[in-house]
Design a protein around this nucleic acid. Sequence first.
DNA 1: TTACCTTTGACAATATTAGTCAACACATAA
DNA 2: TTATGTGTTGACTAATATTGTCAAAGGTAA
Lengths: 100, 100
Amino acid sequence: MSTVGLQLRELREKAGFSLRKAAVAIDIDVAILSKMERGERKFSKELVLKLAELYKTNSDRLVIDYLSEKVLYELEDEEFGLEALKVAEKQLKYKKQNEQ
Amino acid sequence: MSTVGLQLRELREKAGFSLRKAAVAIDIDVAILSKMERGERKFSKELVLKLAELYKTNSDRLVIDYLSEKVLYELEDEEFGLEALKVAEKQLKYKKQNEQ
DNA sequence: TTACCTTTGACAATATTAGTCAACACATAA
DNA sequence: TTATGTGTTGACTAATATTGTCAAAGGTAA
């Protein structure tokens, strides 16, 4: 399982950016980016998108993983986490249908 | 779709509690309970459990719906919400397996 | 040394959430 | 009428969590 942070770290390195350069480019403190890549702090969706753009990568997969991590964080150690996800899925599907 | 708040309101009425009585019983301000039942404020899991106990109801379904609502709240209007849920589900299943 | 790199922790600023309280409107009974 | 009980509302404070800032440390390489 590769976290969004580690994915973005790989992408950064492949794109040839140092932490500092990347941080400056998206206008945040280097300490924050360092912590985010290592999972010590949570990303915001906005930053994920900015970084994806900086690294010239499609952001869809990253956003999906970002959201998934967010959700799993909410459900950590919950006995009924899986059941909750299934209910949520059902309701989201229902909502999508009656929307379009 | 019945929210946790409305479910708990029904349960309260069936159990014969006024808002005030129920609020006192679980030691919160009546204003908060009123808002929670109507979805104006989020529940905490702790309060859901306390109310379920007060109303002598099994809490499993309520907790599942509570968590589901929490998750859906995180995903509101996200283009890839459904995909994120699926990824989260997969990872949770995987985790559960390698746990026991 | 100098110049980068990343990590770390302490701290401040900000935003979010939770809790408190008084007042309101409505209904009903005395 | 007055009193009592119902639920709702909004303003306010308090507590907590999240974010941002900064300086310093340790590593590596020229």
